[in-house]
Nucleic acid binder design. Structure first.
Lengths: 130, 130
DNA sequence: TTGCGTGCAAAGGTTTTGCATGGCA
DNA sequence: TGCCATGCAAAACCTTTGCACGCAA
């Protein structure tokens, strides 16, 4: 809107972090503790929510902590899968899952928001422990 | 599996709360502050995560707070979908979703645990607000 | 110069953990 | 009687807020 916004060094630094690893999900902690960045805690949170609002990055909540990721392509449709055992987060971008979304929408009248959805389960390495 | 577990008064009290309002979502705070229950804070959290693990209740993370709700359906295989807008929980049991599980397992090496997975999105009635 | 942005510290809220006691089997 | 469960308090986290100073325009 008509918000006055300054262009600061900190904004560049943080945005470049996301751009440098556009497929990586960052936790706020990870960013705050990054020595090569060294931004104030409050600043990180303020910039993150600002970026989210501006559509530069995406936020999704996973349990207690939030994850942030560069938004490479506006409506990029992919799912997240989190391993219950090791905690690793996986991305899956596959045409079949789009079909699933459509199927659920048409046959079950539910419109999945894959940005807010995380599939839980076990990854290849952790499966044996089940 | 070979976990020793005692049957306690507190477990009954908490489980009965969920059973008494099987469609209601409770926040941890709500439960802790319920005078008629009066369970210790730590106990509530411990029992909640225990119930979740046992499949007795389901946990949803919506924004900051976690929500807990009775899980009517024992261990059978189907997915849950929760409307972000109205909070209603839907069940979906459809052969296609089994195919999806298999697909993810075979082609993406991830083994979805549908008991712990909830799809978030908008139901038919709430979709217009999106 | 103006006033937004930053960083520090403190506050606020949720969940976890340590430890002594209580209660089930 | 063993040993898990409970409850209290403290700790551990994540995130927000207040405030003085710094810095962009």
């Amino acid at each position: 809107m008509n918000e006055k916004s300054y262009h600061t060094k900190q904004k560049d630094i943080l945005l470049n972090l996301f751009k440098s690893q556009p497929h990586k999900c960052f936790t706020s902690r990870e960013i705050i503790e990054d020595e090569s960045i060294s931004l104030g805690e409050a600043t990180v949170y303020r910039l993150l929510s600002q970026f989210v609002k501006d559509g530069l990055i995406q936020k999704f909540t996973q349990g207690k902590a939030s994850l942030y990721q560069f938004n490479h392509c506006g409506g990029d449709s992919h799912f997240h899968m989190k391993c219950i055992e090791c905690g690793e987060l996986y991305h899956i971008d596959c045409p079949m899952l789009r079909d699933v979304e459509n199927h659920i929408a048409h046959d079950h009248n539910f419109f999945v928001d894959n940005l807010n959805t995380t599939l839980y389960g076990y990854c290849k390495g952790c499966r044996k422990d089940t």
